[in-house]
Design a protein around this nucleic acid. Structure first.
Lengths: 254, 254
DNA sequence: GATAGCGTTTAGCATTGTCGAACGCGGCAG
DNA sequence: CTGCCGCGTTCGACAATGCTAAACGCTATC
């Protein structure tokens, strides 16, 4: 195990702490939360502030995340190859399915949304790019857990929180669902994450035939399902989109 | 001048370098660009990778920005008070004006877009949240430079690039425009940044009556202007929105 | 107007990150 | 096939670097 730079690890921990706590945090809170001396925490925060990664409220002296993170995070999206290739196809999927489209990749213990196309009606919707979804209850997450060994390991290790009465948290049952996902090439989320919301997703492969992400649609169960089952034409549309993106990434269809 | 943590400054410089270069960068490029020994650069990159701030392409070994930046950058938006307060009003402004709405704050040498409402038609538009705009040529930037002393200083120091034939780069003339902006309470961008694109913006104040950002609309000059001048009803709508948001932030109307 | 808590600064020690050199590996040319 | 060059990575020793603990000024509170 190679040793990592201590001050950087501490700085990263601070940023994650600031991201977690809803409100701004004071220096003493930060220092005690991480078990550091106040002066140590102060030195790191001062540098982070100078670089734009954290900001300090002039009135209260409290700290919060800084604007430079937004700029760099957006740049990450600009360079993201999977997202760039998926842009065209996801628009078409949203139009043909009439539902919101999500594109996600594995990040830490969940799915990071890297692209989101609004449902094509005039309702007010909030952009969820940059948000995280759990692996065990969402369609995007199940697809990744079924096709990416790293994602699967994360799912096994993670604590699987029940969000609704339908959420499956037992490992045995999840494994059976993942087997099914591998067999049929897509996964579903039937009110397992939000009441009244269902989703379908399919895996995206790169040229080495490794899963690099998943696409899917999410919508009200009344529209997405019929007789308690997902509408077959929506499943087909999602799988077609996933195949098209995979082909764009260089994956050969066997 | 207090001293900052060296390794953190170097790590931040690396992230900015990776954000600037369009493509992935190799270790040797990074080390020589920053004037560091390869081993030093490697130690920092290894830690940044472990924390999710950079990723390494398994094939080429090159480095690029990591997903954690997107997650943290989005969290920054979630906590952003100005943005939260502006959400409702900007939707209304987009609807009443029929144009795209932008909300920006000062960041480093330019305006960072923290919110963007699409023009309410079905045309394909790309979200510009997280992007930067220059201070000297845009409506959002001029408003900030006219109302925020820090932004003004940044404008004076910055190199003012000419984007179109109409871009004003001479300091004297810009200062006169800023005086006018302060006097009338809004600023315009008449094809000074993009050919055929015009914009109006107005300042947003907080409870201490300090400028904290600017809102504005941007659109094709044929729609936004009439007889070479901005349509008065659009100027009024933008100023109303800025006042509403300021009031939400606690600014008293004198 | 004393107190308690905050963020900040200071000084000295030793831990920590840095550096130059060497390593293993892959691609490329001879 | 073999030698070479470039890459990313590891190693070990030095001292510069960032850490710790204690003291400082400040504001808000009772």
């Amino acid at each position: 195990m190679a040793k990592n730079i201590q001050s950087l690890e501490r700085a990263a921990a601070m940023l994650r702490l600031l991201a977690g706590g809803e409100r701004r945090l004071g220096l003493s809170d930060i220092a005690s939360s991480l078990g550091l001396a106040k002066a140590t925490a102060h030195g790191i925060l001062r540098t982070l502030q100078h670089e734009g990664f954290v900001e300090q409220d002039p009135g209260s002296g409290r700290y919060q995340l800084g604007a430079e993170l937004l700029r760099l995070g957006t740049t990450y999206l600009d360079v993201h190859e999977l997202r760039a290739r998926a842009l065209v196809w996801t628009d078409d999927l949203a139009r043909s399915s009439g539902e919101a489209v999500y594109l996600g990749v594995l990040h830490q213990h969940g799915v990071l949304i890297v692209h989101h196309v609004f449902r094509p009606d005039d309702s007010r919707q909030v952009l969820e790019v940059g948000a995280m979804q759990p692996l065990h209850s969402t369609a995007l997450g199940k697809v990744l857990a079924a096709t990416d060994p790293v994602a699967h390991a994360e799912l096994v290790d993670a604590k699987r929180e029940p969000f609704t009465a339908r959420t499956v948290t037992e490992l045995d049952e999840i494994e059976r669902t993942l087997d099914l996902t591998r067999a049929q090439g897509y996964a579903a989320d039937n009110e397992e994450t939000f009441e009244g919301v269902a989703a379908v997703a399919a895996p995206i492969y790169d040229r080495r035939r490794l899963a690099v992400g998943s696409v899917g649609i999410t919508g009200a169960v009344e529209r997405v399902c019929r007789d308690g089952e997902l509408r077959p034409e929506l499943i087909a549309a999602v799988r077609d989109t996933a195949r098209s993106v995979s082909r764009d990434l260089g994956a050969k269809p066997f």
